[in-house]
Amino acid sequence: MFKQPKLRSLTFADVLINAFMFFVVLICFVPFLYMLALSLSSPKAIINNEVSLFPVGLNFEAYKQIFTYPNFFKAYGNTIFYTAGGTLIALFMSAMFAYAMSKRFLKGHKLVMMLIVFSMFFSGGLIPTYLLISSLHLTNTVWAMLLPFALNQFNLIILINFFRAIPAEIEEAAIIDGLSYFGILQRVILPLSTPALATIGLYTAVFFWNDWFNGMIYLNTNQYPVMLFLRNIVNGTAMIGDGAGAADKSTIAMSIKSAVIITSTLPIIILYPMLQRFFVAGLTVGSVKG
């Protein structure tokens, strides 16, 4: 810091702005607090409308139930598999593609760049994509989740720009040391690119974690990801919980639904603040102006 600006006392406007920001934080948080409260409350408290932001009649029954429900575990495991596998494939493909594309002297470079940019504005659409994937016989296999989404144009452009910003001297030194281009990518470029890789890795992982639609149209029931499982609970096509007492059923379902929401969202809420110093930079460096 050079010169400390003169300290001014808080004006009325400051108080107003701070109050508003506090309100924003509350708005972002309250829905989760409510879900947490519902998932930990007793069915009786829920049915009597006693639960607002804190659990009433604290118990872990809902969590116990979903953790003994085999379909939930299956779906959760599927999601972890799609997220880990999909993100790995995406990073592998994107890194190779972007590294080659960061070399402007390659023949055909301009054409491929145009293909990438054009497909950002005009894409195949739902039906042609669906027909392609089913004619490749990928439907009802996990590859329908892992393969088609490996390359994303926005992520590619972030990565290409990042690779281009790495000083050429580093690479020239590596060439003199006798490294091949594969060696350079693996041993020099990738270690220098953790911020960009973390950024697009996070975007990709979030995409896979949150997906339900592709799971719905391409997979069969025992391959469903957890978000699709949740969606089926919400719209009533999947039932969860034992049928203990018909009157209790809807309220039990309510706390169970909340427990599924909490458990399926928690990993992401924990993960993103750790990676945020990367992705804020990644978003502003690579975005919009390309």
């Binding site: 593609f97 080659a100 002297f105 293909l115 497909s119 994509t129 392609l132 088609p148 390359l151 990518l185």
Partner: peptide, 28 residues
């Protein structure tokens, strides 16, 4: 530079298959 072309080959095929084949699929 052949290694760079090799590097690009697989992702480019993937890109053409999953982005451009559906785009051409619009002829449907």
């Amino acid at each position: 530079y052949w290694q760079l072309y090799i590097m690009m080959f697989l992702p480019l095929c993937h890109f053409l298959l999953f982005k451009y084949a559906p785009l051409i699929g619009n002829v449907l």
